[in-house]
Write a protein that binds this DNA or RNA. Sequence first.
RNA 1: GCAGGGGUUCCCGAGUGGCCAAAGGGAUCAGACUGUAAAUCUGACGCGCAAGCUUCGGUGGUUCGAAUCCACCCCCCUGCACCA
Length: 436
Amino acid sequence: MPSIDVNLLADLQARGLVAQMTGDDQLNTYLGEGSRTLYCGFDPTADSLHIGSLVPLLTLKRFQDAGHKPIALVGGATGLIGDPSFKAQERKLNTADVVESWVGKIKTQVSAFIEFDGCDNSAEVVNNLDWTVGMDVLTFLRDVGKHFSINNMINKESVKQRIDREGAGISFTEFTYMLLQSFDFAELYKRYDCSLQIGGSDQWGNIVGGVDLTKKMHGGKAFGLTLPLVTKSDGTKFGKTESGTIWLDAAKTSPYAFYQFWLNSADADTYKFLKYFTFLSVAEIDGIEEADRIAEGRPQGQRILAEAVTRLVHGDSGLEAAERITAALFSGALESLSESDLDQLKLDGLPATTLSRKELQGLSLTQVLVDAGMVSSGKQVKDALGRNAVLINSHPKGAEQNMDIDKCFPVSDAFYGRFYIVKLGKKKYHLFELGD
RNA sequence: GCAGGGGUUCCCGAGUGGCCAAAGGGAUCAGACUGUAAAUCUGACGCGCAAGCUUCGGUGGUUCGAAUCCACCCCCCUGCACCA
């Protein structure tokens, strides 16, 4: 019998991790009385989860650490349908085999965050396709559908804009999503005595649906709890950068890029993120915030955040790689890098391109940097060139050298005869390795 | 199927014959200031180093000239009808 941390809910609240919950203090009492089973669903809408999913994922772990049993549900079924909640438009359906391949990847990812060591509250990973694929429509309509009121469903905030708004609309398929998710909860209740569902605050409608259905189908007592949507102080969308989404998959977002993402958090968000994304105690985090407030200059919060989350997602080796690159590039002493350091940077995930001098002939610098993926258009390079913001092995290049590729990559400047580090703007780096 | 509304550059959204590569806002990029932060200010923001080239759902047409006008087609939304 795992020991129960009765302060779990209070801690979650102190972290700002509770958006809404059913049953108010009933849930607190319920969680304090014994080890409970809870679940959170992750739909396979891509081949990897992104950092938005980290909040519920880590919350599952927090529950496990407090003595409860977490179930990560991968939506092999729901992923075929598409959740309409707060979506402005109907989404395109993915094919069954694509979704299936994503399910596999996401199962693996999810599994990294919770413990399966065979203890009493060891985690489970399930796929809702397992109990929906064999179900026929009539059974579904009679056993599940009958418990839902359309009147109720169309009044849900989550589909309101699709019902009201001109230019949108919702298909029966997506409208039915809620029934599927609700059925998952009821099913997990039956199979695992799962009595709590957590999820992002956009899932509130679906979660409440599941709570109700569990009651109706099995007379079970079930709870729901939602986590806040992660927002940024400046109002822009969390989890995106100019180069796109921050994924958990190292092949899609390198540990270095991942680390940099967190390091670049705004002060106004950093301490909140520490509470959301790390296991540091609230007291520790408050201490860090206070220390940063008093200290002059650069705060420590971002670094602590970046280290903690990168280690959590990419492990010690991923963190080391990220820190190695960061130290090399941002110390301003590129010349001090050894040849093996440079080779290592490539392996560590610093964006890199290999080219021969022959291939470069006739190309403009703008073209080379665009091809390497540093920028999306030559205009941006031109703009940077005009402001002395392009440095190649620490030598600034100007617009007049754009067409003279040999002056951009002079043999005499190459590190160890083959490496060039191009810096564009304040923090974009790219390694070029030139052969003959 | 009928009627009405609509499809503009990443997003929102102006534009209804030339002054439109297309207002404005957001996002994004770069510079200054800083702490690889925020705020602020400046510049960029279809593609191209440039000459120039390609856009406003699609295809044709009218015109010296079209995102703007006409025809047909495709897609979305709303209502009605059909299904009964």
